[in-house]
Amino acid sequence: MTRIVVTEYISVDGVVEAPSGTEPFERVGWIDHFTRGPEGDRFKFDETMASDALLFGRRTYDGFAPVWPHVEGEFAERFNSLPKYVVSSTLKDPEWNNTTVLRGDVVEEVTRLKERHQGDIVVHGSPQLAQTLIEHDLVDELRLMVYPVIVGAGKRLFADTTSVKTLRLAETATFGDGVHVLIYRPVTG
């Protein structure tokens, strides 16, 4: 079954902006204060090995595209070779290998994508896109790696929605320095 999986590094106060890396955010790297341990690494590794495609918002894509092609190792190889989709009305000639730009209506484009793929289409970061997918009930699984920190500023994952969305807590685990993995699925019907 094809699923849209949204996977996020998130703080206790719901911030998802620039958890690590070099983005121009004053508090960039707030997950770097903690270790998620070998099980946490394994979780992220398995996630990417099991992905069938990656779906990005424009900003997260722009953050990843210049970096990942230069990373080596099994994880990066997989990440770089997977089909990538980026939602953007302006991006032309994307340079990252195997990227397709989705220019149309997000909901229609994503619905079509789900017909094209067999496994998990995984969204990393991309809060604005994630909010649109949540609003339109297009998220089949929400994976939160909750770091024990109040970031205090920055983009949050959750925005206003037009209705209440009831979820089911499918799995939990705690890794490393109190890094909490929560897996939610929508309650349907």
Binding site: D13, H33, G152, S163, T174, G178, H180
Partner: peptide, 18 residues
């Protein structure tokens, strides 16, 4: 999908312990 929250959007960064 909206309502009052306990965490401000303009606070300091504060590491916690689970």
């Amino acid at each position: 999908g909206g309502g009052k929250r306990i965490f401000r959007e303009d606070g300091l960064l504060r590491p916690l312990r689970l």
